[in-house]
Amino acid sequence: MSEMRQITYRQALNEALAEELERDPSVFLMGEEVAEYNGAYKVSQGLLERFGPKRIIDTPISENGFAGLGVGAAMVGLRPIIEFMTFSFSLVAFDQVVNNAPNMLTMSGGQFNIPITFRGPNGPAHQLGATHSHATECLYANVPGLKVCTPATPRDAKGLLKTAVRDNNPVLVLESELLYSSKGLIEPAETELLIPLGQAEVKREGADVTIVCYAQTVPLALAAAEQLEDEDISAEVLDLRSIKPLDERAIYDSVAKTHRVVIVEQDRPFCGVGAEVCYRIQKNIFDELDAAIARVSQEDVPIPYNERLERAVLPNADKLIAAVKKVCYA
């Protein structure tokens, strides 16, 4: 393989969009401020200039309307990429994302699949308050017919987004505002980078405990693993990358090696992603476990604006380290 490059998560998404728009004329990007403003978070920078207003389309603030437009266009064979300025605003379009997009194939007896990508930042950012901080992965992963992925690195962001656009089903690419400017290694621009949905990745090998994480909790888990190393705890960091489909094989392989698990998720504790992962581990490889599984998630409250309280609500490295020590009886 030729030289790897360093690019930002934002650039990686931008490359993915540009490549898929270039490759397939039925792909278009629609959302608030995606064209003339180059995206609220500049993910679509330069795309209007390159692909023109027919394919890079600014909308009014009408999430329910343009998400539904996307589903309709997908019924007749276009491949819409619908950007939500944040997934907190996807709640305005909940009916389209949850009722129309994923149900259509079944309801029509297999006649209408919906090849649509919904993408945008998801999860708490920084002091945005209760309405603007939703981690929606548990809501959407609950819906049969939807696929949900949560890239944490530039490479995953590009590879997963490209795969999502080519998938014949509704796929949600849940990005992270806090990761847009983060950098990482990625193949040269000319390499076709596709990362399959449903494939987790070990981001760091370890022997004593498996930290299952995704999206914003991946950098957090890596930082915690570094610190734990100093205390002679070797943590394996397993990035789910997709919430649905879930790579159970990768989880079980890691757990069979370490026998201890901490799940760190950015969503809520009640019916959160970790609850599902936890259930599957104990159901399928209970005998491999040397300790009860621990979860680190948000507190079960609407997210407060105050910085100190917000910090208390969200998962962080200290909470994760404490949980790891607990399952390691350290």
Partner: peptide
């Protein structure tokens, strides 16, 4: 709003100020 709402979520029952709402149109 006791520091829980922030700039976008000002509420004041006593003065009949019912918010401060950050989802456009909601």
């Amino acid at each position: 709003s006791r520091g829980l709402g922030g700039s976008m979520h000002f509420f004041d029952k006593e003065h009949h100020m019912y918010g401060g709402h950050a989802i456009v149109g909601a």
